[in-house]
């Protein structure tokens, strides 16, 4: 193994109440790598991210983040390991202004971007900094959800369906941002429905089925395995 391992998930099981969602997830992500979890709706991709953050019910197995076992940690302790989470529903707070939303997550590591940098990256947010968070457009809300975890110094980003329901021009902008983040050596886990968005960004892809990893595909193998993916995902 050439690069250092940043996230190692092994035999991860997760439950919501009585329902058993993840059935032994196994995968690793290297430092500075961008991986994508692909799969059908309900395969367990979103639950994987939530389980990583400690937001599901019971969890068993092992989650090692930057050398620390996190399976028994409370969500805020996991975040403090340097993890930034962007949930599927974006999670913009309606009782907070845009700027309050942006400033909400506490610092969990050094080297986060400054507010000025972020406003430069997302000029719309600067314009609307005093608006109520949920008054922003869908695209702006997504920018805000992303921007607020870049401020905290988190080095591992868990991004859930960030391109969902957005106009092509905004999706393109998001793609540029992810590329920019890759050059800055962030470690990224992308959960994506939009294969065309994820495929060029991801160094490796994991196909999730029935709460398990069904296949691993490196960027270099992608062309050869398109048939398989097409059949599986209908892309």
């Amino acid at each position: 193994m050439s690069a250092t391992e940043y996230l190692r998930v092994s035999k991860l099981h997760a439950f919501y109440g009585e329902s058993h969602i993840l059935h032994g997830m196994d995968f690793t992500v290297r430092r500075g790598e961008c991986v994508s979890l692909l799969g059908r709706n309900g395969a367990g991709r979103t639950t994987t991210l939530r389980a990583l953050m400690g937001l599901t019910g019971k969890r068993t197995g092992s989650i090692v983040i930057n050398g620390r076992e996190a399976i028994d940690m409370a969500p805020h302790k996991i975040a403090q390991l340097g993890v930034g989470y962007c949930p599927e529903e974006r999670g913009i707070y309606s009782s907070l202004t845009t700027e309050e939303n942006l400033l909400l997550p506490p610092r969990v590591g050094s080297g986060g971007m400054s507010v000025e940098e972020l406003y430069e990256m997302f000029p719309n947010l600067a314009e609307r900094r005093h608006s109520q968070g949920t008054r922003l457009s869908g695209g702006e809300q997504q920018m805000l959800a992303l921007a607020r975890i870049l401020r905290t110094g988190a080095r591992l980003l868990l991004l859930d369906e960030i391109s969902e329901g957005l106009a092509p021009v905004i999706v393109q902008k998001l793609g540029e941002i992810i590329r920019e983040l890759k050059t800055r050596d962030y470690t990224i886990v992308l959960v994506e429905q939009n294969f065309r968005f994820a495929a060029p960004l991801a160094d490796r892809m994991f196909v999730v089925e029935h709460g398990q990893i069904a296949a691993e595909i490196a960027q270099s193998e992608l062309a050869g395995r398109m048939d398989y993916l097409q059949e599986l995902l209908g892309v």
Binding site: H76, A79, Y85, Y93, S95, L96, L103, L104, V108, T152
Partner: peptide, 19 residues
Amino acid sequence: AYLRAGTENPGLTQAFGIN
């Protein structure tokens, strides 16, 4: 702001590192 966030969405707020 922490309080309002915690009131509105305690799970996500904790996932941002707030106890």
